[in-house]
Design a protein around this nucleic acid. Structure first.
Lengths: 177, 177
DNA sequence: CTTTTACGTCAGCCATATTGACATATTTCA
DNA sequence: TGAAATATGTCAATATGGCTGACGTAAAAG
């Protein structure tokens, strides 16, 4: 069967599109796929006991990371529509993991905060995922934390990087006003 | 649900005191999230023109990588049910990206092969994703390809690694080049 | 006072996954 | 040979997480 594929690959060389380059990095592609799958799998297992999914996790994570987040900012970070957010956010509000307070200067805004319960869940999920990173980095010969950060950052669209960087390392929402 | 939460909360405290969990690696968590999102976004944009989604991509990718794959093997790799696979696979067969032949020794088996058209699409998608890796690795000071592979592999569940390694390199991890 | 902004909501659609039950062909084994 | 195990297909119902479009409302900004 490998012969069949090779023969066919040769015969169509002329018809290959402009996208064709050197040998594809199948190993990196597949390792990234499986690594991410296991990474989110940790959180999935913790969440399914409470009846939440990944959508809830993402919302809770960013609300916990940036307490006082506005709806519009959250939509921008997640890249989803307000209708999509609404069902998930409503469940988080109803079950008391997140709470919303009207903005001080602008009372149209609903600023989102984690409740103590929501904060604990968010930290448990983050700890779980951090432990995977710690284990992984600990398996590597030298300290690979810096290189890992550099690699992951380099994988992000250059145009997106500033936004991501300020989200990851930037100021908290309290100083924003 | 309250019980689950309470137990969960206590286990968190225990973990904090005994395992001395340091501050969660929010940066790695979020960078991994955004990196993976951009990574799959490349393929998503190419696929949506033909009306395919990520599910089609995953099936086509592994069929292209391992021509002659059996249905059961594919289900095992993807970790989904046959009912989920069926619709997607049917569309790939109907549109002529994948073809199925009965097994030689066991005619119950349906061995899956990429058609020339399917092979080209799979390679276009892989090339697109490879270019992101090449760009990313090229931005880093020293050659980071080996370290990147090691890091991604370390992120995968230890119990899963041998399976992933033989899938990626067709051999065990020790003999990986 | 009008417009814009920030948000909520209803209604319907699509894609991807799930489980359970049942059908069919084929191979294997007692 | 006849029974059981295997590989796969299929029908039906359900969940989740997204989408678009349209419409409503309260508050801020001009």
């Amino acid at each position: 069967m490998d012969q069949a594929l090779q023969a066919h690959s040769q015969s169509h060389k002329a018809a290959q599109t402009s996208a064709e380059v050197s040998a594809p990095a199948f190993d990196l592609i597949e390792l990234f796929f499986f690594a991410y799958r296991d990474f989110v799998g940790d959180a999935d297992r913790l969440l399914e006991d409470i009846g939440f999914g990944r959508a809830h996790h993402r919302v809770l994570h960013f609300v916990n990371r940036q307490p006082g987040l506005m709806i519009a900012e959250l939509l921008d970070i997640l890249g989803i529509t307000k209708q999509s957010l609404n069902r998930v956010l409503k469940e988080l509000l109803d079950t008391g993991y997140v709470e919303a307070r009207a903005g001080v200067t602008d009372r149209r805004q609903r600023l989102l905060f984690p409740t103590p319960k929501g904060h604990r869940l968010a930290m448990d999920l983050s700890d779980l995922q951090s432990r995977r990173f710690e284990r992984a980095l600990g398996e590597l010969p030298t300290d690979a934390r810096g290189p890992a950060i550099d690699f992951l950052l380099a994988m992000i669209d250059p145009a997106e990087r500033d936004r991501v960087c300020s989200l990851v390392w930037g100021k908290s929402r309290e100083e924003k006003s």
